[in-house]
Design a protein around this nucleic acid. Sequence first.
DNA 1: AGATTGCGTGTAACTAGTTTCACAAAACGT
DNA 2: ACGTTTTGTGAAACTAGTTACACGCAATCT
Lengths: 359, 359
Amino acid sequence: MSTNDTDRKPARGTRGPDRVTQANLRDVALHAKVSVATASRVFADNPNVNPDSRDRVLASARELGYVVNGLARAMMGRGPQSIAFVVRAMIGPTFAALAAGVESVAGRNGHLVLMSATEGDPERERDLIQVLRELRVKAVLLVGSTETDVSFDERAAGYARDLAQVNASLILCGRPPVAGHPQLVSVDYDQPAGVSAAVDELVRLGHTRIAYIGEGPGMTTAELRLHGYQTALRRHGIALDPALIRVAANNEADGARAADELLRSGTTVTAIVTMTDNIAVGAYRAARALGISLPDQLSIIGFDDAPVVGDLTPALTTVHPPFFEVGVRAAEIALGLAPRDHVLLPTRFVLRESAVAPG
Amino acid sequence: MSTNDTDRKPARGTRGPDRVTQANLRDVALHAKVSVATASRVFADNPNVNPDSRDRVLASARELGYVVNGLARAMMGRGPQSIAFVVRAMIGPTFAALAAGVESVAGRNGHLVLMSATEGDPERERDLIQVLRELRVKAVLLVGSTETDVSFDERAAGYARDLAQVNASLILCGRPPVAGHPQLVSVDYDQPAGVSAAVDELVRLGHTRIAYIGEGPGMTTAELRLHGYQTALRRHGIALDPALIRVAANNEADGARAADELLRSGTTVTAIVTMTDNIAVGAYRAARALGISLPDQLSIIGFDDAPVVGDLTPALTTVHPPFFEVGVRAAEIALGLAPRDHVLLPTRFVLRESAVAPG
DNA sequence: AGATTGCGTGTAACTAGTTTCACAAAACGT
DNA sequence: ACGTTTTGTGAAACTAGTTACACGCAATCT
């Protein structure tokens, strides 16, 4: 035994010169005069260990500053697993609420959450999923609106296949199931229904000249919300007027620009439904700048129920999407706590001051 | 060789019955008729590999559906490392901006970001850091306001020590350095200076009865911002009136409650500085409800420059903290791209409509 | 008393990679 | 043609754990 002892240099690994080599399980076992197996059992909370040995191992661990190597553990399929949260950009309360929902479930169940942003770059997306696959994450949540073209559908199906290879799953959050690939589970909120509810309310109030401002086609959220507007109007027997549909990027400045153009176009408009609260705020600005009084001369309804919009003048009527709940449900599926079925959560229409009967 | 072949059962590991065992490097090497060492070199992008062997290995890998095991790699100190982002709660644009800053740096440098919430529970915080330590993260960013008592300071120093043991570091974000532990690096923005700038502007406009509404003592952000108010008043030779300092939780409803009590207390108040925009929005509500006209009868200045507050009526004057930049700088230190020095970033005063000369 | 059960433990074989070292063969220089 | 480098490769020893299996010994059961 003593030969074996001297045989082993104090720091076996010949790494960096300054880096004090970390004590490992072997060192602890040796110091506690037990086998590695017994030492391992102590840290794995295996009950079949003599209390005496356990104490010696724990004491040695403390003395040597031993910290279990979670990576070695993970390799054996032990220890906490992780799920990945992949989003286009970490922006705003939407991201925060979704992330919080995911983390709350993961945290409660001893899982870790990896968060990454793709910046909309498919190459980065692909690289990221490759890395996550190598790290054997349990699931990848692909969060948010995505391109509506087939290229995304195929990409996503490829990711799902690749992930399945390592027993991981892909879950889409905040966008609907992919057309040709029903096995690709989606957790979404009913975006068209949300916008339809807004239109319904305006029609009920007596509006017929209802405009829509939102992003142009290409992304799921843009198309779904526009679609909600169109189907609601059709359902009410109101003809779609192309002059009433305007394209704007999802920010206040461009929303203001689009609203300004719309309001100065000469077309009669008594109400505007916007794709997002951001655009609605832009519409407020444009209307104000043109001397249009809100809400009596123009009703505006947003979407997202962002913070503070309820304190605008007039308080913005909007649609509240259950972002936190989407995160929760997606995480539950990711962890196998819920069946792998598509989920479509309802939105809540929030009637405030900005929608009234036409003047 | 054929004996060796049959000797190995197709699925060596006797794991779950349905789970098709993953091909590993040995399988690939065998299939490509090279040694594991050579196969390893192929995936490690080691140039000393015959193109012919490389092709055979890659072909075998494809055929067997081989995915490098990143966990095994990580154990060897290869592959992507990760940094952890630990926050009290994943709420609002503050969290989002900080997270985005961290992720942008980490992502660009091939690192992964683990995000977790403590919910303010020190036990969960401790467990979390233990897990992160075991997983050999490169750094833990402890984000946001923390308790001001010594218990936190000691806890944090303990975390730093524990993390140092595994060559990881602790970085505090959005709170100042810990008093007795200067080695504990902090990345913060100048919170007192931000509030002071708000007070300075109000004094310049002619206000002397300037109230403050914010959280009570106990957390760093609450104390720093209040302190900025107090020092600015003192600097201007204005006596501190305890009746002008009100406590409110950081939300609109409680901000409204506190503002209501203040405005109905009989004390003269011509301006309110609030700890956060949330509270400022509550103050708007309370003032409105009491028939006080904004901004001519009452100036209000917030802090955080949350989205949409610039579109309130009147547009909220506030202080813009560089949250994204804080995240960036913290991540740079975490990755060793910047020196381990304390960072204190400036805030930007955003003058809008809610602060005017007293009526 | 003899058989049976069960606890505690160690050996050795796993998890899946990387890397050092030695050694051959090919390429290059004289 | 001969020595020297370069290149490519494989065996084996590492990274740091877990765990199946066997075995000794003590406690309980017939």
